[in-house]
Amino acid sequence: MAAHLVASTISLRVNGQTRSLTLDHRTTLLDALREHLDLTGSKKGCDHGQCGACTVLVEGRRANACLLLAVAQQGREITTIEGLASDGELHPVQQAFIDHDGLQCGYCTPGQICSAVAVLDEAARGWPSAVAADVADTDVRLDAAEIRERMSGNLCRCGAYVNIVAAVSEAAGGRA
């Protein structure tokens, strides 16, 4: 068996900044963010892709950072909860979570918010969900059933779901 190098130097674009890192190949994107770049907003919940606390945006699409190997993200644009606000203004989804008390302990909140930002984008592009009556329908209305389905990859063990749905609904332009 050939001997393989077990670490590599990569660069990532994280919240608009280029960051260069030399990492053991076993390092997940989540650990690279938290342990190597000191961006501890993304949370480690289950570390197995089952809870969504680690959700970040990769090239604008939501993903579980705990299941991505950092080495495989070479050159990609990563947005974490720390990168959503701009010029001191909270992202509208962040503001909506505050306005609707969309949290209790707050541990799942960074992942919930990153996921919700992507949900708004997916809906705007006409992506269907499993609760669509007809998957060919491109006119997506984010009612409560749609929001619950689309946010199902983000668990909240405090059970703040009612207010999370209200927050996402308002950010989507619907009635809270």
Partner: peptide, 29 residues
């Protein structure tokens, strides 16, 4: 695959199956 217009129009059960699996985060990857 799930959001592809041709798949949604002609093979809707493929979209239905994919959308019923995992989460938005996992399906993106």
């Amino acid at each position: 695959i799930a959001v592809d217009p041709f798949v949604r129009g002609r093979f809707p059960l493929l979209s239905e199956a994919l959308l019923s699996g995992a989460s938005g985060q996992l399906r993106n990857v």
